[in-house]
Design a binder for these strands. Sequence first.
DNA 1: CGCCGTATGCTTACGATGTACGGCGAGTCT
DNA 2: AGACTCGCCGTACATCGTAAGCATACGGCG
Lengths: 229, 229
Amino acid sequence: MATRTREPLTRERVIEAALRVMDDEGLEAVSMRRIAREVGVEAMSLYHHVEDKEDLLDGICERVMADFEFPEQGDDWAENCRRGARSWRRLLKKHPNVMRLFAEERGPIRSVDSMRPTEFALRLLRSAGLSDRDAAQAFHAFGGYIQGFVMMENGSIAGGADPEHAKAHAALAAALPEEFDALQAVAPYFLECDTDEQFEFGLDLLIRGLGAKVGASPGAGGQEPPRTG
Amino acid sequence: MATRTREPLTRERVIEAALRVMDDEGLEAVSMRRIAREVGVEAMSLYHHVEDKEDLLDGICERVMADFEFPEQGDDWAENCRRGARSWRRLLKKHPNVMRLFAEERGPIRSVDSMRPTEFALRLLRSAGLSDRDAAQAFHAFGGYIQGFVMMENGSIAGGADPEHAKAHAALAAALPEEFDALQAVAPYFLECDTDEQFEFGLDLLIRGLGAKVGASPGAGGQEPPRTG
DNA sequence: CGCCGTATGCTTACGATGTACGGCGAGTCT
DNA sequence: AGACTCGCCGTACATCGTAAGCATACGGCG
């Protein structure tokens, strides 16, 4: 028979297929029917493994986060931060569409593995000498920067990566009234666009700033937490 | 007659209606039919003023950017940067869903007004003493940070703003295995979550870092641009 | 062995979406 | 007057998420 006791579809396999389709064909290709086809099943069968499409997308997010590659750590906290940040960016760029999912309101976390990157980052910041409070703040600062940067790389609002769009952008900048002189002066550098270098630039700013802060109040562990009621 | 020569629907009015619906009822409510109803017309009539839905969404983005409020400028470049950043964040928070649009790949810019915030930011950075090249880099650093931060505020992946979600997140953190000690220690501060303060923290890091850079190579204008072929 | 509850999958169907296509009425030009 | 254009409408279609019900297969029981 064709329908021999087949491999019994799991949530993991569904999500994996969805991630594959998303990476290969874009987020709009991720429909229940498309994913079902991908795993050799009809659309409605997926609902035995995911609650609904939102849940599927949540699953993709967690799946991606769980793929974070933990960089080796050395003695220099700044370099450790840099490596962590680069790794996070690399991950986000590997699945360009996941930023769009992050930008939506996501459901509660379900898998433990997807929290490991956060734990990793927080340890790193604490080991740099930040208080728990400052670690939380710095976490948001770095997280925001990295995700926002990648978003600008992908979405290309106000300075994107792909040459064609950048070219169009620059052409438009050149055609602008004279009052946009700063834009016209800087446009070539938008075009040049070595995004790795640009990423490092901002990363450097954050780390320098953090260095100043660490130097200012060195070695402080966590003081008492705020009342969380 | 009811159908007297009525106000002749324009692209602007369509986009304005779409923005209103998006702000009031969320991005998923923005359908061609819904917007058409909003302006008292049938869905297909919209296509005389926007190419397709993508174009409409592009229009929303530009419309929002054109709403940027230019803060007054003083003598302190750092304070000027802060004001500009706060203004940009305020704008993004005023239309929380627009971040999701920015996260997608957007079409080419069409309106001049929507470029003014960029021009403003670049002037500001140049007046701080940055070279054109560094201004471009810093622009991406600040832009990335601000947008990413707001995205985290809204989307709440790894530390969101609204209390309910944060609470759930913290509860989950507390229930985590012991290996997540950093996360557990910092969780209260994620919960506390004075987002304004957190925003200022990251902003400060960037500005401090920039200050170091400005101090290092002071007053340099723009050197020659790279070949843009 | 047969029996049955519970997973798992399929089929059908419904309402909503973006938009291609063609028609219709009014204003403008020759 | 007649032709043409412009703004708008109505209809139609493919695709989407998913609710409801039916079919089949598997595991634990007698």
